[in-house]
Design a protein around this nucleic acid. Structure first.
Lengths: 247, 247
DNA sequence: CGTTCGATTGATGTTCTTCAATATGCGTGG
DNA sequence: CCACGCATATTGAAGAACATCAATCGAACG
């Protein structure tokens, strides 16, 4: 399993390198991060709201959602994590779990002790900077979702979700934006988009009519990606992919 | 104006100390952060979407909003900043402005060169850690807003806004949660809550009836704070105020 | 004293929810 | 291989929440 650990941390390092310059030594230190590899089924709760955590969760394969539970029992997924994402890196500086993390699809994760992450950050300030930058990136995506939930209608939100995930998967080398695997149920999409699953279904049908968007069986395919992006008002700038910032 | 600079950075240091332990030396270094103090009127654009920035904006007095502009011209305010907040600390690691920052009320700010912030972070790793933690705090608030926009109705969202700002101002020593200044127009509130100003007006009237909430003339006053918090599903945990984490 | 911005009100339309029913696919045990 | 059970998807009808459009009101300010 040392093999799979290295490839797991390798994905994570690749993600960090998108936005931060790291020396070979720093990269090696990250690759050697320890952790327990875990396979979990759909619906498994990796972080339960209220229970303190002492490890961060690196997604190797599958799909994770960070969610907030409302008092009435409904919930809102605020962040979607694809392989290579350290889904709660933010729990390292502040291990207070005001949220939950759930496997939205069968997933493989590596649980990395906070202690190890902190030790690395302390030993290599550029790594700490890279972690900060990673958190900023997540926050930028979150801000975009806030804007969409506040001001875009269901069709635009759904289209935006498809565009964003497509581009993120493409950047991570996990598919093409025009066609990729997305193992979400319509109920999950509802919790992401802030609507009901009934309305997800109707909105999907509408987008199939108008834009030839196919979403079924855990796969997404679109004939008219540009049209979809236009409808969504999708501009990838907020994904902060354009530049590498050394420091 | 050296006086006002010190008091400005002092507020910021106090905010950092809520969640991070810093030595006297580190605190002094933060207090000495250089910057240009600026007074701006309501509606002034401090950061224009698309224009790169080379300084961070520390709010001394007033109210700032970070917003995202939609293609149809509407906008969504994603983050509200009160005095003592460094409104775009996140621009230090990633100076890509995919958003705008506007003075929602007449405000006094201090513009701190990124260079100075970076130098401090490089010289004092605990300060870098404190910055990261500050970004995580902002992201936690943002996640809560994402959840509210997705799953709470207009009355609950409005009540939540009032509760959150009240508590944040109280913690910053700028008022009591039951009564405080909030120089927002109903149009601003609409852009925060993701509804129209007409509906803000009606929702405010509803909350005045049901909870004795008074919002007018830039002031907020409530006779039944607990009732308001209950209606909002407000739990201050996400503000991450409970603990101090050393590192 | 007029102008302007924000607050308030009314009438009407749209989007999305809710409730309920039915359909479909897929794994499991027989 | 088939029947069953369960989760997910699909559809319809009715209602609630919120938007839109348009007008009026009020207060601050030059």
């Amino acid at each position: 399993m040392s093999q799979s650990k290295t490839s797991a941390t390798g994905q994570f390092v690749r993600r960090l390198l998108l936005r931060s310059a790291l020396t070979a030594e720093e990269q090696d230190a990250l690759l050697d991060l320890p952790g327990r590899v875990l396979q979990v089924g759909r619906g498994h709760q990796l972080v339960v709201p209220g229970n303190p955590v002492d490890h961060a969760t690196l997604l190797i394969d599958g799909l994770l959602g960070r969610y907030d539970q409302m008092v009435d029992g409904s919930r809102q997924i605020t962040t979607l994590h694809i392989p290579g994402d350290m889904s709660d890196l933010h729990s390292v500086p502040l291990p207070v779990p005001a949220w939950g993390i759930e496997a939205l699809a069968p997933s493989t994760v590596m649980q990395v002790p906070h202690q190890a992450v902190r030790a690395l950050a302390a030993a290599f300030p550029p790594i700490l900077m890279a972690f900060w930058r990673d958190t900023v990136t997540d926050a930028s995506i979150l801000a975009k979702w806030t804007a969409n939930l506040g001001r875009a209608d269901a069709a635009a939100r759904l289209a935006h979700l498809i565009c964003e995930i497509g581009v993120r998967l493409e950047v991570a080398g996990l598919g093409r934006r025009e066609r990729f695997a997305l193992p979400l149920t319509q109920g999950h999409m509802a919790d992401i988009l802030g609507i009901t699953s009934v309305h997800v279904n109707r909105t999907l049908m509408g987008l199939r009519q108008s834009n030839g968007l196919l979403v079924s069986g855990g796969f997404v395919e679109t004939e008219d990606w540009r049209g979809l992006a236009k409808l969504a008002g999708f501009d990838p700038e907020y994904l902060l992919l354009e530049n590498v910032y050394a420091d």
